[in-house]
Simulated scan of single mutants.
Amino acid sequence: MYLVAIKTKEGEEELAALSSGTVVIIIGQSVVLAYASQSSWTVETTQGLVKGSIAPDGDYYTFLGLKYGESIIDKNRFMSQVEIHKQELIIESKTIQSLTEQLSIKDQQGRLNNLEILGIPSKKGENLIGILKNIATKVGFDLIPADIDYIHRVRRFGSNSKSHVDNQLPPNIIVRFTQRKRKNDMLAAARVRRGLTSADAGVDGPPTSIFINDHLTPQNKILYRRTRELGKEKGYKYIWINNCQIFVRKSDTCKAVLIQNDSDLSKIK
């Protein structure tokens, strides 16, 4: 392995590690390839080739107006610059991760007043408000017109799946409440009344199971699925969502653990 410094006429220096007979690094503003043999090195530019011998005296070579020089450099100097670039990449990666998590949190906060209803068959000309009222009556929640900001269907997350079963499932219904407390009250009532079906919503046809949940972001839906899979594998007794946050608890005597991102999955032991 040869450690070589190649300099331009502006005094800029590019570091290259040249292995015998191997293309190792792209260097310089017009240098595209670098090769090394037992006793010489070759730099291939966009205009042609520059050749020189492996020598500790730092001989310089001129080619097409650009000056390239070679000198054996300190390995520690080379490795320290590699380490600096490595640390910069780590910092940039952490910054990107932090910004992504902040955007995800804001996205989830924008859904705190929402309920998501799954399993209601879709029909042309359907009355979604009427369906919601029927469900509210069935679970014992006193729904009033002022509770509803809007209601509509959305394509299910993962509906691009190649699975025939996934593609046959109806779009989910999203209900946005004007007050978060009213949304939480209806969700609590629905959780007490288990076994809801489309017949309870006043929808004709064979009854199908329906489910009412917090409206999670796609990222948190994936996180919740992973949490359930890992929690089941590790023998956790409780895995649930409260106010759009994911919690786990291994047993009745253990404390609840909040799972906010993939890193938190390491807490499930």
Rank of each mutant, 00 (worst) to 15 (best):
R153G: 10
Y150P: 04
P121N: 04
N160D: 15
D149Y: 05
G140T: 07
K138R: 15
F157N: 11
R156T: 09
G158E: 11
K133A: 10
S122G: 03
P145S: 10
R155D: 09
I129S: 08
L128G: 07
G130D: 02
V139T: 08
S161D: 05
L132E: 01
I131K: 01
I144H: 07
A146R: 05
I135H: 07
G125R: 08
H152N: 07
K124I: 12
K123H: 15
P121F: 01
V139M: 06
V139A: 04
I148R: 07
I135W: 03
V154E: 15
N160T: 06
I129T: 10
D149A: 13
S163A: 10
L143S: 02
D149N: 14
D149C: 07
L128N: 14
F157S: 08
K162S: 14
N160G: 15
I131A: 00
S122F: 07
T137G: 01
D147Y: 07
R155Q: 13
K133L: 06
I135R: 05
N127R: 06
E126A: 01
S159N: 14
H152A: 05
D142R: 04
I131V: 04
G140K: 06
L143V: 04
Y150C: 03
V139R: 04
I148S: 08
I144S: 08
V139W: 01
G140N: 05
V139N: 02
K138M: 10
S159D: 14
F157R: 07
I129K: 07
F157W: 13
D147V: 04
R153K: 10
L128P: 09
P121R: 00
N134H: 14
D147R: 01
F157D: 13
L132A: 00
I135M: 11
S161R: 00
N134K: 15
I151A: 11
R153C: 06
E126W: 06
F141S: 06
I135S: 10
G130K: 04
R153T: 11
K124A: 12
S163M: 07
N134F: 02
E126T: 05
K133T: 15
A146S: 15
K133M: 11
F141H: 09
D147S: 02
N134I: 12
